[in-house]
């Protein structure tokens, strides 16, 4: 659902979406926290381009994979929190499966060289 047939080759875009979904699997977060979490959990390897993060979030929201709600952040400020919808969870599951197949395949290709 997240990665339609037409977007198969759009690795970067799709990957960011997938990472966002994965990040939100544990619970609602605001944009900044998402960026930080991706960064931290990839040991600083994946640095989300912050300018691209928000359009991705809004796009996912429009697709109905995320829900957004204004809440209060850890430092008591108004922040926009994103949460997975049921559709978002489903998309995450499909993506995870597809991703693991893809990464194994790529690893094979790279390993055989």
């Amino acid at each position: 659902m997240l990665m339609g047939e037409a977007k198969e080759g759009d690795l970067l875009q799709g990957t960011l979406d997938m990472l966002i979904l994965k990040t939100l699997a544990r619970g609602a977060k605001h944009g900044y926290a998402i960026a930080e979490w991706i960064c931290a959990s990839s040991d600083d390897i994946l640095r989300v381009e912050e300018g691209a993060l928000y359009p991705a979030l809004h796009r996912l929201e429009l697709k109905g994979l995320l829900e957004a709600e204004w809440g209060v952040s850890e430092n008591n400020r108004r922040a926009r929190f994103y949460r997975l919808t049921r559709a978002g969870r489903k998309a995450l599951a499909t993506d995870t499966k597809r991703w693991s197949r893809l990464s194994i395949a790529i690893a094979r290709v790279m390993g055989s060289a």
């Binding site: 605001h30 944009g31 900044y32 960026a35 912050e50 928000y54 204004w70 952040s73 400020r77 108004r78 922040a79 926009r80």
Partner: peptide
């Protein structure tokens, strides 16, 4: 206003 606030929040946090 929401859009501006969301971006401002991010910048403040950073």
């Amino acid at each position: 206003r929401d859009v501006e606030e969301e971006i401002a929040f991010h910048l403040d946090m950073r």
